[in-house]
Amino acid sequence: MPGGGSGPPADPEGDDGARLAAIAAASDAFIDAVPDVEALLAIVAEQISRTTGDFCSVVLLSPDGTTIEPVAAYHPDPELVRDASSLLGTTIELAASGPWKTVLGERRTLVIEIDPDHLPENIAPHQARHIQKWRMRQAAMIPMVAQDRVVGGLNLNRLEGSAPLGKADVELLEGLATRAARAIATAQQMRDQKLTASELEKKVAERTRELTAANQFLDSVIENIPNMIFVKDAKDLRFVRFNAAGEELLGFAREQLIGKNDFDFFPAAEAESFTAADRETLQGRRLLDIPEETIQTHAKGTRILHTRKIPILDAAGEPAFLLGISEDITEDRQAQEALARAQQEAMRANRAKSE
């Protein structure tokens, strides 16, 4: 146990220069610790305790203003600090917090005289033991307010043997509380912004993974559809996407097709026909079904396609892309023609027999 409280290193009564110097030194210490809330709270308690020579604890008010919590404490005597550590981290309802309700609710400082041998009956047992053990004679409870928001409060306990708190002491404490409040509010805001940014990054990463998975699924579907699928830009009708079936049908790799248009691969008459159908689809903003069209391919010669063209509209309802789905029906047509020829041959043969 300390041999009585040491009191402030220099009596600030009537010494404005000393008081301002103490506030300036504390402010510098607070600023240096601002990014780290936990470190800042510890520094606030230590800096104010060293400035005044008193036991100092920092109490934070919950964001909803309903509870308080002692979060940091300091005194030059490490044994006192260890003893006080059991008082930290306990959430207390503000309505049942005694003087703190007045200090934080009315935003005014209270200086309370304490008689360790005659404590109020309603004081908590662990607090009573702490006060009696360390012979605390005065408590100064100062609200910490920043930008018109109550952040919490400072609790100063002056020990037996120290000079009573004077007006200048209280003014010094209130100045320190104001600067501590600003630093704590800034640190909390920075922490919240960091958490918000971190949460946003997580959401973006999660959404990116979802979109990647969705695109991979879509790519897999498109690549495995046996019909040719192509996408053209609505502005200049250049190819922007092709699937494997389209590469096989036309006889070109998609790298050769992307960025080109119909006139780069097909005879002029065919290209004109394809382009006219594209523009009709985009202007009409509706599906165009082409039951049969011929196309000159690079590897398979003339093929017959059943093509559907679909306009893809943007958020404003304007055409952004053209989606084409072409089914190679060449073999079907050849089979139908062969069947028709066989039927005609059979009919001629039957007529010949009847004659």
Rank of each mutant, 00 (worst) to 15 (best):
D83C: 08
D83T: 06
D83S: 13
D83G: 03
S85T: 08
S86Y: 12
L87Q: 08
T90N: 13
T90V: 11
I92E: 08
I92L: 07
L94S: 04
L94F: 08
L94K: 02
A95L: 05
A96V: 11
A96K: 11
P99M: 02
P99C: 03
W100M: 04
W100F: 07
W100A: 03
T102K: 11
T102L: 09
V103D: 01
V103Y: 01
L104E: 01
G105H: 06
G105D: 03
E106D: 15
E106Q: 15
E106W: 05
R107C: 11
R107E: 11
R107D: 02
R108L: 12
V111Q: 06
V111F: 05
V111M: 07
V111R: 04
I112G: 10
I112F: 06
I114M: 06
I114N: 06
I114Q: 06
D115V: 07
D115N: 13
P116L: 07
P116F: 07
D117I: 09
D117H: 13
D117P: 05
H118Y: 10
P120W: 10
E121K: 15
N122P: 10
N122Y: 15
P125E: 15
P125R: 15
Q127V: 15
A128G: 11
A128W: 01
A128C: 12
R129V: 15
H130D: 12
I131P: 03
I131C: 12
Q132G: 07
Q132E: 12
Q132M: 14
Q132V: 11
Q132P: 07
W134T: 01
W134Q: 04
W134S: 04
R135F: 03
M136Y: 11
R137I: 06
Q138H: 09
Q138L: 11
A139W: 05
A139F: 10
A139K: 02
A140K: 00
A140H: 00
M141E: 06
M141C: 12
I142R: 00
P143I: 00
P143A: 03
P143S: 08
P143F: 03
V145S: 03
A146K: 00
A146S: 09
Q147A: 13
D148T: 06
R149F: 03
V150T: 09
V150W: 04
V150K: 03
V151Y: 01
G153Y: 00
N155L: 08
N157R: 09
R158H: 06
E160H: 12
G161M: 05
G161S: 04
S162N: 08
S162K: 04
P164I: 04
P164L: 07
L165Q: 01
K167F: 11
A168I: 08
A168C: 07
V170W: 02
L173E: 04
E174C: 10
E174T: 08
E174V: 11
A177I: 05
A177K: 04
T178A: 13
T178D: 13
R179W: 10
R179F: 12
A181C: 14
A181Q: 01
A181Y: 04
A183Y: 06
I184V: 15
I184L: 04
A185K: 08
Q188H: 14
Q189F: 10
Q189A: 14
Q189T: 13
M190T: 10
M190W: 11
M190P: 00
M190H: 10
R191T: 09
D192C: 09
Q193M: 15
L195T: 12
L195I: 13
L195E: 14
L195G: 03
T196D: 14
T196H: 13
E199K: 13
